[in-house]
């Protein structure tokens, strides 16, 4: 087992803004030698007890790490991929003993489910979907949504995993343009939201498969990634990031944005811009939103964290060990922030 525990002295300095409760608690090191690509958290039953585990992905292997009594992490299982590299982990929000992964080169070509044999003895993987897959998201109630394109049309498929291991498939009515990202709508159980390549937001009814509305959100939101959506008082609130956003606008460099949309009229208005503090350069590379906190890896190699209610950046994690940050995720199982570098180091805050 390859474990390294970082000493307290190695804690990277947060800036003076407000580091809050963000403290480095442990570090995982993958010695596989291949490039580290993603991290996530998952509940896994080990010897009859559900444990909050960490999943790490390198190019050709995905590993499950269980918490040890010492506060460190021990590698439990590894799934290996011989031909197609891993692009991202696709966590299933309320499922134990199962995680999905997307594999491909530039675009997703396969989605696989990773699990263990019923006696917990060996790693198993099941091929769920192949094709030119543009977007995938694990949903609540054991569902996985993905969109894929053929030459003439787009398929949006929802797969439901039954307890016994079988899968049920349902198709949602596809919009004309390519879907870039999906998000469940908190507060409206059967609503699913998608962002499209033409700067539209679409809403489906997951139960009936109906495409309910297509809403144009303006040309300043190009290639938006939707990180969170919730419905409140008849309005839809959406947290977006903009990979194509300009580096600097009058109010600073915007990384995330909260917009409010009236789904009945398709009218929208910007509510809040989440900008970098003065003196910080960079724009969004990749990030994650959980509850009221957004985290983003920036082109500068720094991780920035915003309190979405306060509206400002509350912490900055500068690059450490001469390695820029490559990805950042909030843990779905506890209050950890998981930050990774390409060399295989994963830091748990």
């Amino acid at each position: 087992h390859s474990i390294e525990q970082t000493e307290l002295a190695d804690v990277p300095a947060c800036d003076s803004l407000n580091p809050g409760n963000l403290q480095l608690v442990s570090k995982l090191k993958n010695h596989s030698g291949s490039c580290s690509v993603d991290v996530s958290a998952v509940w896994w039953e080990i010897a009859g007890v559900k444990e909050p585990c960490i999943i790490t992905a390198c190019e050709y292997a995905v590993s499950l790490w269980k918490p040890l009594d010492t506060g460190q992490w021990g590698k439990l299982y590894s799934w290996h991929f011989a031909e197609v590299p891993v692009l991202q982990i696709v966590p299933m929000p309320d499922v134990c003993n199962l995680v999905c992964v997307a594999l491909g080169n530039l675009e997703i070509r396969e989605i696989r489910a990773l699990l263990c044999s019923s006696d917990g003895g060996c790693e198993k993987q099941v091929l769920l979907r192949t094709g030119n897959i543009h977007a995938v998201l694990g949903l609540t109630q054991r569902r996985l949504v993905s969109s894929s394109r053929t030459l003439c049309d787009q398929q949006v498929e929802v797969m439901t995993f039954a307890e016994g291991g079988s899968e049920e498939k349902q198709f949602l009515m596809p919009p004309e343009e390519t879907v870039l990202t999906f998000a469940e709508v908190q507060g409206t159980q059967e609503a699913l939201l998608g962002t499209t390549i033409m700067n539209n937001i679409v809403i489906w009814n997951l139960k009936t498969g109906q495409l309910l509305k297509k809403m144009h959100i303006g040309d300043s939101y190009q290639a938006s990634v939707c990180h969170k959506a919730y419905s409140e008082m008849g309005l839809l609130f959406v947290v977006l990031s903009h990979p194509c956003a300009k580096e600097r606008e009058p109010s600073g460099s915007p990384v995330f944005q909260l917009i409010a949309i009236n789904p009945k009229t398709a009218l929208s208005v910007g509510v809040m811009l989440y900008c970098l503090p003065q003196g910080q350069a960079g724009r969004f590379l990749e990030g994650d939103v959980k509850d009221n906190f957004a985290a983003a890896v920036l082109t500068s190699g720094t991780i920035a964290i915003w309190d979405l209610l306060l509206g400002h950046c509350t912490a900055l994690l500068p690059p450490i060990s001469d390695q820029n940050w490559s990805f950042v995720k909030w843990s779905g199982t506890d209050s950890h922030l998981l930050a990774g570098q390409k060399d295989g180091n994963i830091f748990v805050y």
Partner: peptide, 23 residues
């Protein structure tokens, strides 16, 4: 944001859009 910017708001937007959209 003011309600005037966004037009008339309905708390039951999801049910209403589901009843209006093609099956």
């Amino acid at each position: 944001c003011s309600q005037a910017d966004l037009g008339p708001i309905s708390i039951n937007w999801f049910e209403e859009l589901s009843s209006e959209a093609p099956p």
